[in-house]
Amino acid sequence: MNVSRRIVLHFPPNITEQPVVYRLVRDFGLTFNILKASVSPGEEGLLVMELSGEEKNYNKGIKYLTEAGVEIQSLSQDVVRDESRCTHCGACITICPTEAFALEPRTRKVLFDHNKCVVCGLCVKACPPRAMILNF
């Protein structure tokens, strides 16, 4: 069975120079789609990606990453909306590159679809009442 999951990888400084993602492809036959990357040699790195492949291989790949010292987090909770702060103005709608925000036509409530979010963080800064929170 094939699986496809969005994950956040935290690289400790000592392995940012290793070709970790390449090994996921070569050794485990996984495919990846990088959604966000911030990796500088000698510093802690961050990679947000969608990783897909045969479930057995996927699990092996995750095991390899863990053993290599990479900390793995699932993506779903990474950008969250503080419902008590959101005023439903809609300033986020045109800012989001993946159209994760939409207006409910009747009420004009701003809906946030977690599944479409790629954790780029643009909405976090652009939100006037500071309702969008980045959790890393």
Partner: peptide
């Protein structure tokens, strides 16, 4: 504006609001 798109100089431009209509209601 509320339809989500306006035409400016022939280009389709997505619109966003800073004022909350939901809360105004």
């Amino acid at each position: 504006l509320r339809s989500g798109r306006i035409k400016v100089q022939g280009k389709d431009v997505p619109t966003g609001s800073l004022s909350s209509y939901l809360k105004a209601v």
